[in-house]
Design a protein around this nucleic acid. Structure first.
Lengths: 158, 158
DNA sequence: GATTCCACTGGGCAATATGCTCAGCAGTAG
DNA sequence: CTACTGCTGAGCATATTGCCCAGTGGAATC
């Protein structure tokens, strides 16, 4: 069965109030409790819903700096480099991208000094050829999925 | 009171099993129920814990393509452009970065055609001067906070 | 037209969790 | 010594969970 408007509404509801119980969800959506259970089970089983990780404000935790790095990698060593990067705690995200066959890295740090250290660690990974780094000054749009869900919830699916 | 190892262990626990009840958390952490309650309340109040949004695999939802764009913006129009970008459903994240005073955009799409459309929408935002786009081929490290939490949970705080 | 699925409803049940309150008990700071 | 703070462990009424089941309506199949 396909992902439908009810699924989207359920996920939106959980986006806004993630620790809501199944029963409460059912009430707010106007469906039976078993239906909500079944939907959640199915979404998990289908791999659409992979979890409810806590969302943290890293800056409130001391990691106030976010930086991005674009890495140029030596031929054929991308997998290897990615593994090394994954071992660095402050590396929060890595994507392989088109372009010069490169990696895109997001990392965090506590201070400028700390950031310097993290960047050095990233740059020193064997196989990294060239890097260009930039610091995030602000985040006008924080990671979100909401608009896409809302579209499906409205039934605007093409 | 500062963020301590117990807080980190609690958040790690919730990372692994986010729909766990307070009582179950207390059992697994070996502390009283009230303590867990109090910690969660405090973390929320302090703004460290902002929620438990559902984590979705967008590709399982039809949005199989992720792309990044770096935008060069006309003098002084960054805020304006950011707002326009926020209005595009497929734009999932925007950061203002150092460099040429630019914006960094993450977006998703269903297909190559669809991506073309999204990129066009982004590029056509008034105030955008130049763009360079790249497509995510793979994601060796998906967004994560875990290593940082684990470090605090171990008590490695400097 | 009849049959077979399938998702959903709505109900009942025992077991469990929640929100709330309270007294006691350490360790720390004044 | 005393006040304060954070944690414990307990009790209680109420709400929620997980599970089971019979019934209903629509869509697909025969």
């Amino acid at each position: 069965m396909a992902f439908d408007a009810l699924d989207a509404r359920l996920l939106l509801l959980l986006t806004d109030a993630p620790r809501l119980g199944v029963l409460e969800c059912a009430r707010r959506l106007g469906v039976a409790r078993g239906t909500v259970q079944a939907r959640l089970d199915r979404l998990s089983a289908d791999g659409v819903l992979t979890g409810f990780p806590p969302e943290l404000r890293l800056d409130a935790l001391g990691y106030g700096l976010t930086a991005f790095a674009v890495l140029e990698i030596a031929q054929g060593r991308r997998g290897e480099v990615a593994e090394e990067l994954a071992a660095i705690d402050e590396v929060c995200e890595v994507h392989a991208t088109t372009g010069q066959g490169d990696l895109f890295v997001r990392m965090v740090a506590r201070s400028n000094d700390d950031l310097q250290r993290v960047i050095d660690e990233v740059v020193d990974v064997p196989g990294v050829r060239r890097t260009s780094t930039s610091i995030a000054l602000s985040t006008p749009v924080a990671p979100r999925v909401r608009p896409l869900l809302e579209r499906i919830a409205r039934g605007d699916r093409p």
